[in-house]
Amino acid sequence: MVDNELLKVKGLKKYFPISNGWFSSKEYVKAVDEVSFSVKKGETLSLVGESGCGKSTLGRLINGLIKADAGDIVFKGDNLAEASETKWRSYRKPMQMIFQDPYASLSPRMKIKEIIAEPLKIHDPSLSREEREAKVKSILEICGIDYYHSDKYPHEFSGGQRQRIGIARALILQPELIIADEPVSALDVSIQAQILNLLKKLQKDYQLTYLFISHDLSVVEHISDHVAVMYLGNIVEIAPREAIFEDPKHPYTKALLSSVPIPDPKLKRESIILKGEIPNAANPPKGCKFHTRCPLAMSICSKEIPIMKTVGDKQQMVACHLYQ
């Protein structure tokens, strides 16, 4: 085990079967295919990619909401991939999730203080009522919600406040790893900034480790230490933040970066506009899955799957034939 490595994922696979009529053979969507990475304690790894790239599935695999088909999930030195449901349950205390839609992820018929107390009731049933309330109170205040509101229901709050409540619920058990699945994409920009600042502050104060799932590169740059770019179930590039944003290697990373609209009209840059659509995940292209849209595709790209290689001196790993 490497120093203070909190989470290590190796060769993780999840194939979803799709039935294609009664008589045809079973097909699979390779939602997550041979994914490996590791996260150090106190750091943020972002998983970024477009819809269907498998980033959300990956988050749910690591949290055990869905079972992996193959591969290892090593959390605090224990391999969870084969663990029983009971063992998983005990690991959900140090590993919590924050969801994209803060409204849908909060039980609509519970008061917010009940929602936030839920994890305590599950994992710490011996706590007295007063102790529980004291904890709820302090966590709400940390997350910027006045305890005065704790008797209200989720629908009485605005989107940003609901996300704060979701964060408070994730935080109350003092977890070590937080998996945040698009936590700010449903929010308005001004609110998004508040939530991002809160997440950063909490990370600093409580030594939290984030697995941050997002499609928004500008948000990712703001929050991450490391970034993994995913395309159709694979990680195509994984590197420290500066490397990804200042010196991206994979053509997909480059295209993704240049597609982000910049809120500055004076910066008219030459953007790489990718041709075509994201291929169907049930029937991805052979070889490098990106070769159908890649502006630099070579003949080898349609034949062989590129393997991950370290490029340069900044721990930058790329799966691309250009660098093999």
Binding site: S158, S190, A193, L196, N197, V219, H222, F245, L257, P263
Partner: peptide, 19 residues
């Protein structure tokens, strides 16, 4: 309050309160 690529800050400016 929009995070801008290539112009990273430790803390984003945010408008307090809500609409």
């Amino acid at each position: 309050s929009v995070p801008k690529i290539g112009n990273r800050k430790e803390e984003l400016y945010s408008i307090p309160g809500h609409v």
